[in-house]
C-alpha cells in the first residue's frame, strides 16, 4: 500500500523533527544550528513540484524592475521547466545542462548550452537544487552558509568558480516553513534578480 503523498511528507517531517530533538536531548554542542542536509531533506519532495514565481530584475541601464511571472515545474529526477506567462508567453526546459527554449506550441526554437552560459547554469542549479532538495548538487557548485531554523532560514550560496567564469557574486535564498522562498541573485556588475517562489501548488 502506498501512503498518500501528504501523509508521507508528514511522516518524514516527524522523523526529521525526531532526529533534531534527539540531537538536542543528547546535548550535542552544535545542535542548535540548522544542518544544511537537514534543511534540504525537509525541502525534498517526492514527485512533481509546481511553484508560481515572480521575477524582478534590476539592471543598470533600466530604471524600473523588469518583471516577469510564471511557474517553475520540477519533474523528477532532474527536469526543470520554467514557463513565463507574463509579459510574453515563453517556456524553457532544463535537462542535464541544456536549456531548450520553446515557443507557445512547445516546439524548440533555440537552445542554450549551460556550459557556455555559466551564470544561467548557477541560477538554474540553485533553483533545481532547492526544489529537489539535493544537497550534493548545491555543494558541488557553491560554498554554502546557512542561518536560522526550519521555520525561517536563510541560505547563502557563493559560486565555487572564480570571477573569471561567472558574473554571479552570490545567491541568497530566504525560506519559511510555510513554503515560500525568495531567491536574490547578486551579480558582480551590481545587477540583481529577485525571484519569489509564491506558493507550492503541488501538495494540493
Amino acid at each position: 500500500m502506498r501512503m498518500p503523498c501528504g501523509l508521507r511528507i508528514v511522516v518524514r517531517r516527524v522523523w526529521v523533527f525526531a532526529a533534531i530533538w534527539l540531537a538536542l536531548s543528547l546535548g550535542a554542542g552544535s545542535a542548535a544550528a540548522l544542518e544544511f542536509e537537514v534543511l534540504l531533506e525537509s525541502l525534498a519532495l517526492d514527485g512533481r513540484r509546481e511553484v508560481a514565481f515572480e521575477e524582478s530584475r534590476f539592471i543598470a541601464s533600466v530604471t524600473t524592475p523588469i518583471v516577469s511571472r510564471g511557474r517553475f515545474i520540477f519533474e523528477p529526477p532532474d527536469r526543470l521547466i520554467k514557463t513565463i506567462e507574463y509579459p510574453r508567453p515563453e517556456s524553457a526546459v532544463l535537462e542535464d545542462d541544456r536549456l531548450a527554449i520553446l515557443d507557445e506550441d512547445g516546439a524548440e526554437v533555440a537552445s542554450i548550452d549551460l556550459w557556455l552560459q555559466p551564470d544561467l547554469r548557477l541560477i538554474f542549479a540553485s533553483i533545481r537544487g532547492v526544489l529537489k532538495g539535493d544537497p550534493e548538487a548545491l555543494r558541488s557548485l557553491f560554498w554554502v552558509s546557512l542561518k536560522g531554523d526550519l521555520e525561517a532560514w536563510s541560505l547563502e550560496l557563493s559560486p565555487k568558480v572564480g570571477e573569471a567564469k561567472t558574473r554571479i557574486q552570490r545567491i541568497a535564498i530566504v525560506g519559511h516553513a510555510a513554503g515560500t522562498q525568495t531567491f536574490e541573485i547578486l551579480e558582480i556588475s551590481g545587477s540583481r534578480s529577485h525571484i519569489r517562489l509564491l506558493h507550492d501548488t503541488s501538495a494540493q
Binding site: R57, I59, S61, V62, I66, V67, S68, K82, I84, P87, R88, E90, A92, L99, I101, A110, I112, Q117, D119, L120, S191
Partner: peptide, 16 residues
C-alpha cells in the same frame, strides 16, 4: 524591453 523579460535576456543584456 520585452525581450529583456524573456529567456534571451542574458545574451541581450550583454549587447543591448
Amino acid at each position: 524591453f520585452e525581450r529583456l523579460q524573456g529567456f534571451g535576456a542574458p545574451l541581450i543584456e550583454g549587447i543591448m
